[in-house]
Amino acid sequence: MTSEFGKVGVLFGGRSAEREVSLMSGGGVLAALQSKGIDAHGFDPAQRSLAELAAEKFDRVFIALHGRYGEDGTLQGALEQLGIPYTGSGVMGSSIGMDKVMSKRIWLSHGLPTPRFIVLDSKTASVEELRKVPDELGLPLMLKAPHEGSTIGISKVTSAADMQGGFELCAKYDEVVLAEEFIAGRELTVPVLGAGRNARALPIVEIRAPQGNYDYQNKYFSDDTQYLCPAPLDDALTQKIQTLAVRAFNAIGCTGWARVDFMLRATDNAPYLLEINTSPGMTGHSLVPMSAKAAGVSYEDLCVEILRSADLDLHSSKDWKPV
């Protein structure tokens, strides 16, 4: 089995704000692949050049990078040029998935539910524009840097007086700030594996963070956050959410694997799409391995399955052809 993969590079670290998380993810993936007898080697694009990557002559690579320069289509384009098969979505799927605003626009065009939103320019948004946002979206509301992940560049606004400070925090990370309607309810996430009509959803994970604050600390380091997997939902609602996750995955043009995040509105159990992660975390606290375990798939076997999906033909034939 292991010989089919040849020499494998595990790309982790990188230059994004999520570097530290990526180092944890990549370390876990590298150890898992090596434990399966795969000839896997770590490679940090922040410390080594693309020329060095080409010189390594990897037969395929596992992308364990998060955020910019690894999850946003830029690296995927370079790997296409080098002819190196890679895990995850292709150039377009990665680029769209990394952009919360574009993801929401595409989901809306497919009739998929996502919270109402307003896009604000980080440099030119006026005090008057900021003042109008709570009037339109209501309070509380969320402010987000659309190209960041791992809860970096995000602020919950509970009063109009909080708008300026929350906006300035998010504006540090991005050229635009996404103002989003707050959906009160349960936080859920659904991993998806495969591509096109073969895409399948794994068990749903429900996240219950202290005081409902699923921030960077509670996401990666705290033992106080509770995870329920499979999420305690009835069969019909489970099926509805898993189907919606696969539709969201395919609408963006994703392939290989991803994780789709939801809010389930408390008043009526209506699911709302928040974002999609095309290179999800693979740390000890990460949700894709947790979901896979509930489906009877070990961390090591999950890494091998994802690695097996690395296929340049898959990217070129499936990328940006929604099902």
Score class of each variant (00 low, 15 high):
Ser291Thr: 00
Tyr86Pro: 05
Asp261Cys: 10
Gly73Arg: 04
Arg105Leu: 13
Pro113Val: 00
Glu20Asp: 14
Asp39Cys: 12
Leu65Lys: 08
Ser103Cys: 15
Gln47Asn: 14
Gly67Cys: 10
Asp319Ser: 05
Ala266Val: 10
Leu33Pro: 13
Ser298Gly: 03
Glu181Arg: 06
Pro289Asp: 02
Thr238Met: 02
Gly196Ala: 07
Gly88Glu: 04
Val205Met: 07
Ala195Thr: 14
Ile106Asp: 09
Val323Ser: 03
Glu206Phe: 12
Ala310Leu: 00
Ser35Pro: 14
Glu71Ala: 05
Leu75Val: 06
Gly42Met: 11
Pro113Asn: 03
Ala64Val: 07
Val91Gly: 05
Ala310Gly: 06
Ala310Asp: 05
Leu274Thr: 08
Gly153Glu: 00
Pro232His: 06
Ala295Glu: 14
Met282Asp: 06
Lys219Ile: 11
Tyr214Lys: 02
Phe167Leu: 07
Asp235Gly: 10
Ile207Phe: 04
Leu75Phe: 13
Asp174Val: 04
Arg197Glu: 15
Pro232Thr: 03
Gln226Ser: 15
Gly166Met: 06
Gln211Pro: 04
Val119Gln: 09
Gln217Cys: 07
Thr87Lys: 06
Val157Ile: 15
Ser103Gly: 14
Ser155Ile: 04
Leu143Asn: 13
Leu79Phe: 11
Trp257Glu: 04
Leu82Val: 07
Glu148Val: 02
Val61Thr: 08
Ala294Leu: 02
Asp121Trp: 09
Ala295Pro: 11
Ser94Gly: 07
Thr74Ser: 15
Pro271Lys: 00
Val8Glu: 05
Gly296Ile: 01
Lys219Val: 04
Lys219Glu: 06
Ala46Asn: 12
Lys104Gln: 06
Met290Ile: 04
Ser155Asp: 05
Asn198Cys: 13
Glu71Asn: 12
Val157His: 14
His41Gly: 00
Pro115Glu: 04
Leu75Cys: 08
Phe58Thr: 01
Ala199Glu: 06
Glu206Tyr: 12
Gly256Phe: 08
Ala32Leu: 11
Ser25Gln: 03
Lys123Phe: 14
Trp257Asp: 03
Ser317Tyr: 07
Asn277Val: 04
Asp261Arg: 00
Asp224Gly: 12
Gly196Lys: 01
Ser25Pro: 13
Leu130Asn: 11
Glu20Thr: 11
Tyr173Trp: 13
Ile204Lys: 04
Leu65Gln: 05
Cys229Arg: 07
Pro289Gln: 01
Ala160Gly: 15
Leu193Thr: 13
Lys144Thr: 06
Leu273Asp: 03
Ala171Glu: 02
Val323Asn: 11
Gln217Glu: 15
Ala245His: 08
Ile38His: 12
Ala125Pro: 11
Glu168His: 10
Ala199Thr: 03
Asp121Cys: 08
Ala179Asp: 05
Val323Ile: 11
Thr225Lys: 08
Ala17Leu: 09
Phe12Val: 01
Lys123Tyr: 06
Gln242Asn: 01
Lys156Cys: 09
Gly14Ser: 01
Leu143Tyr: 10
Ile183Leu: 04
Pro289Thr: 09
Ser35Thr: 10
Val61His: 02
Leu228Gln: 13
Tyr69Thr: 01
Ile306Asn: 14
Pro271Gln: 01
His285Gly: 00
Arg19Trp: 03
Ala201Gln: 05
